[in-house]
Design a protein around this nucleic acid. Structure first.
Length: 316
DNA sequence: AAATCGGGGTG
DNA sequence: CACCCAGATTT
């Protein structure tokens, strides 16, 4: 595909029109969040990590819980892994919390307790990829750019590129370039969340084109209107009895034990989860995996939340 | 490129 | 039960 050709094909007057229509939509529909207006890189980092693969309706509670417990970079860095995981709770993908913990330690030890603003440095931090790096730059440092997420890919892929299912059909590099052209100068901290909210409520996976303010402009509208079949965005495997299901069960129990300062043996952990011998064997492997990821510790015949016994001590 | 990593919610 | 989600990392 000739990217240059595709870019120049964007009707210039549509750029201004799309910006105008969405900014008007934002007045009534954009949802405000506490990390969007105060240029706090730490808040932006935490929010970005919380947002990974998680609906916005859940994020404020997780974000507030984290900030209440660890109001500064240093507080987070100096917390124990067990405390980190306890606060993360049932937010999902606990690996995110562990990586965020590591990232805070790196910022304290290597960057003088400052979160970098440079993208090359940001994406080297554990758990920080292109999206989260952009979130930090946009909300933390007021840098004018686009954080490409699933919503923005979908909106631009449809409205500009004409692909009904951009996640499968649109070239990510083209989305990047389109996004840069559509960005209203100086408004990244408003524009990005507006697009995301629009993608979460109107230009959804199964779009609500009837109520879409861009339907006259959207290049993919005719195809979508024809009622073509929309494929799943990604393969979904059955959650029940999956590794992820059992990992979640294990961590949930260990959070409760840690919260009550109870000791717990590895054997009792496994037996409390199942009497099935084959499944017990599978759980043993998952426990080893969790320990390797430093989400739980193993010592003698005991097991616990975090990277080392003694949940109230720092683990630096 | 494909698999893996939670958990809550919707239909 | 299938699918979705303000992704990142490993295989």
């Amino acid at each position: 595909m000739n990217l240059q050709f595709e870019i120049e094909r964007i009707p210039k007057k549509n750029v201004g029109l799309i910006q105008k229509l969405l900014m008007e939509w934002a007045k009534d529909n954009k949802i405000p969040f506490p990390w969007q207006n105060n240029r706090n890189p730490y808040y932006a980092l935490v929010a970005g990590v919380c947002a990974q693969q998680t609906q916005m309706s859940r994020i404020l509670e997780i974000f507030n819980r984290w900030i209440d417990s660890f109001p500064t970079i240093e507080k987070g860095a100096n917390a124990s892994r067990a405390e980190i995981l306890q606060v993360w709770g049932n937010a999902g993908y606990p690996r995110r919390a562990a990586n965020l913990h590591k990232t805070l330690k790196i910022c304290v030890n290597k960057y003088d307790s400052i979160i970098p603003h440079d993208e090359d440095l940001l994406i080297q931090l554990p758990g920080v990829g292109p999206f989260t790096a952009s979130i930090i730059q946009i909300f933390g440092y007021g840098i004018d750019k686009t954080a490409i997420d699933t919503n923005i890919t979908r909106i631009y892929g449809r409205v500009i590129c004409g692909d009904p299912q951009p996640v499968h059909e649109s070239d990510p590099k083209l989305i990047q370039i389109v996004a840069a052209q559509l960005l209203p100068s100086g408004k990244a901290h408003i524009w990005n969340p507006t697009l995301m909210d629009f993608g979460a409520t109107v230009c959804t996976a199964k779009p609500k084109c009837d109520s879409c303010i861009l339907k006259k402009i959207c290049v993919a509208r005719p195809k979508l209107h024809s009622g073509i079949e929309l494929l799943p965005t990604k393969k979904t495997s059955t959650f029940m009895n999956s590794n992820r299901y059992w990992r979640g069960k294990i961590l949930k129990i260990l959070r409760e034990k840690n919260n009550n300062s109870e000791n717990f043996s590895r054997k009792n952990l496994v037996v409390s989860l199942t009497k099935d011998l084959d499944l017990q064997e599978k759980l043993q492997k998952l426990i080893d995996d969790l320990a390797k990821e430093e989400l739980i510790w193993l010592q003698e015949n005991m097991v616990g939340l975090g990277d080392s016994p003694g949940s109230n001590r720092n683990s630096n």
